[in-house]
Design a protein around this nucleic acid. Structure first.
Length: 649
DNA sequence: ATCCTCCCCTAC
DNA sequence: TAAGGTAGGGGAGGAT
């Protein structure tokens, strides 16, 4: 939801016509600025933070609880709706009222612990719909006056008031007083507002203002103000940094202000060391970001992960891959770097976790793989995730958390790595099949997956260091987290079914099926006959796959191809397609590239519908083979698309 | 010298 | 029962 508002602001800015009608009303309503006779060039940063947002929103529906210690949590223990208390609850407090904070309660605390501090605490449930409505009311209100907004989350934002204040010539304190009043009227919730010359100052001012107040550091001696601020109150300083600072006997910003830079750099690194010192002086060079660019998308589940068998993990990953694919498509992005993150039960952690179904003590690790071209395709994601999973060699029952992340999103429309390779290969003068340089593709080979028979995870992996671990620890599966009851094999068929039309020639699904039948591609795409386990390597294809007769690999292949095309004989055309598919299996992608470029040229020169149809069919067959071999499709440059009907027969 | 991968830290 | 997920910044050390 938080990131949603960043893109909401992007949208508003894009659609905006440059006019803010609401600004007109301000000019008469607020007293003119006394301190700003001329336009100021410095940033005027405002930071708005709603006061204990979740609680405030819920209190609108539970007004009788106003003024009492209240917390929003999953737990129903001591609920205002249901009687009965639970001092052992491990449910976490998402947000608590200021009355509760006075008793020492904090966000993130367990309900059990909170009840010991404050037995009269009332808990209320989440209300996500209402959070959303309220947050939109907040953003829409601010947007009336300015779109120089950096959204932080659903209840927090920065805005640069420079243009607003300069245009209207209004007093900025009057302005924020009015804004707070209007926000309360629109949302029914109070907020706190801070002002400063940069985002850090604005943020520190808000801290001072809370709750339901406002504070400005615009005209303050900021360095002096910062002197007494505890370093741990600086944004970006968490538990770990605080611990290191304690060991250095450093507590307040004043102590940092004139410290030799090396001391902080030694402990925290050059960049963060410098940042700490600058912050201690109230300096923050980072400008507000009004146009956000998403850098990654991920799906992580670190709760309720309990598996016994490999196929359960695979099924789960399939659902995670589909969810990730869905999210990528929602934002219209594709990604090229796929990361699998695992949480594995720590060696000495008990099987039963303290928190029900929690991950307990766990080791985190991650591995990533660079895809050949950016994708949002769930099958491609799944195949590569399974490949990564295999390389971890973790037995299913030790898993406690699973996450899949896609990054390197749609990098400024650069051509895919594969196309780059193609072009490179095509530039090489020699095309003879003996001296041609090989493209390195070893790391992209797709594991053969046979869920029906035995687990690829077990079969392909080296002996696991967990081999002797207890196998009877499973409590339950979480597959219904994503509400799917499909069996494990489903996705193998979809490798074929899902071969999407967009890739090349807008292929209708029936045609894909037709191609499959016609060219004897097995229904379970990607599942090869595995004679003795050796097919997982990049071995040279067997006798049946002999490349001796491959038309593309012979001297004079250009004229041969031309001849075969001229005949328009079904068998000849079929032969071309089969040989092209073989090139994919042989990983002779550079040859394939040159050949396709050649075919494309002569076919567009000829301008025959039948030839175009053939070209499209050939391209489709190549993509199917690509999916099987590399679990990745070729991105074909636009200029290689051939418009036209598909071959009927 | 720069990029890449894996990881940690932090905000919310 | 009780229930964190999502994203960005940056460092260490190896790879290019």
């Amino acid at each position: 939801m938080g990131s949603g508002f960043k893109y909401y602001i992007n949208d508003l800015r894009k659609k905006h016509n440059g006019q803010f009608p609401s600004r007109e009303q301000l000019k008469g309503k607020l007293k003119a600025s006394e301190t700003i006779p001329e336009a100021k060039q410095e940033e005027i940063v405002m930071h708005i933070d709603m006061d204990c947002f979740f609680v405030s929103v819920s209190l609108k529906k539970h007004p009788h609880l106003i003024g009492q210690p209240v917390a929003v949590t999953h737990s129903k223990g001591n609920s205002s709706l249901k009687s009965g208390d639970n001092f052992n609850s491990f449910s976490e407090i998402a947000s608590c009222s200021y009355e509760a904070r006075e008793k020492g309660l904090k966000n993130g605390m367990f309900v059990g612990a909170a009840l010991k501090l404050c037995p009269e605490l009332k808990t209320i449930p989440y209300d996500f719909e209402e959070y959303k409505k309220t947050a939109f009311a907040l953003y829409d209100k601010i947007s009336q006056y300015t779109l120089d907004i950096e959204a932080v989350s659903c209840d927090e934002l920065y805005a640069d008031l420079r243009s607003l204040v300069n245009e209207c010539r209004i007093d900025v304190i009057e302005l924020i007083t009015m804004l707070r009043k209007e926000i309360f009227e629109e949302t029914g919730c109070t907020c706190s507002v801070g002002l400063g010359k940069n985002r850090l100052q604005a943020r520190m001012a808000t801290k001072q203002a809370k709750p339901n107040g406002q504070f400005s550091l615009l005209n303050a001696d900021v360095e002096a103000y910062m002197k007494d601020i505890p370093i741990k109150d600086l944004p970006g300083v968490g538990p770990n940094t605080s611990h290191h600072l304690n060991q250095l006997k450093l507590e307040t910003c004043g102590q940092l202000q004139n410290l030799p830079a090396q001391i902080l750099q030694q402990t925290f690194g050059k960049k963060f060391g410098d940042t700490l010192q600058m912050m201690s002086r109230g300096v923050d060079e980072k400008k507000l970001v009004f146009e956000q660019v998403r850098k990654s998308v991920s799906v992580e589940v670190n709760y309720g992960i309990r598996f016994n068998e490999d196929h359960e993990v695979q099924t789960f990953l399939k659902q995670v891959a589909e969810e990730l694919s869905k999210r990528l498509k929602e934002i219209g992005k594709k990604g090229k770097l796929l990361t699998l993150k695992l949480m594995v039960r720590a060696k000495d952690a008990s099987i039963e976790t303290a928190k029900f179904m929690g991950h307990g003590m766990a080791d985190k690790s991650s591995k990533s793989i660079a895809l050949m071209s950016s994708t949002d395709d769930s099958i491609m994601i799944l195949n590569n995730v399974l490949k990564l999973l295999t390389s971890f060699n973790v037995p299913p029952h030790e898993l406690r958390g699973i996450g899949v992340q896609m990054s390197k999103l749609d990098e400024d429309k650069k051509e895919s790595r594969l196309i780059e390779m193609f072009k490179k290969a095509a530039e090489k003068p020699s095309t003879s099949n003996t001296s041609r340089p090989k493209i390195e593709l070893e790391k992209f080979d797709l594991p053969t997956i046979k869920p029906q028979k035995s687990s690829p995870l077990k079969k392909r992996g080296r002996p696991s260091k967990f081999a002797n671990a207890n196998k009877s620890s499973t409590v339950t599966s979480v597959s219904d987290m994503f509400h799917s009851k499909k069996n494990t094999q489903a996705y193998f068929k979809r490798t074929v079914e899902k071969l999407d039309p967009e890739v090349l020639a807008e292929l209708p699904p029936e045609l894909v099926d037709e191609i499959l039948k016609e060219y004897q591609i097995p229904e379970e795409g990607g599942v090869e006959e595995e004679s003795n386990g050796s097919s997982m390597t990049n071995e040279v294809p067997n006798k049946k796959e002999s490349s001796e007769d491959n038309v593309f690999l012979k001297e004079g292949w250009r004229s041969s191809l031309h001849f075969l095309l001229e005949t328009e004989d079904e068998a000849s055309l079929l032969n071309i397609i089969q040989d092209a598919a073989q090139l994919v299996r042989l990983k002779e992608l550079d040859v394939l590239y040159i050949a396709m470029r050649f075919l494309h040229r002569i076919i567009t020169d000829e301008d025959k519908e039948r030839s175009k149809a053939f070209y499209n069919k050939l391209a489709a067959a190549i993509q199917i083979e690509m999916l099987k071999v590399f679990s990745s499709k070729l991105s074909i440059p636009k200029e290689f698309n051939v418009p036209g009907e598909l071959l009927e027969s």
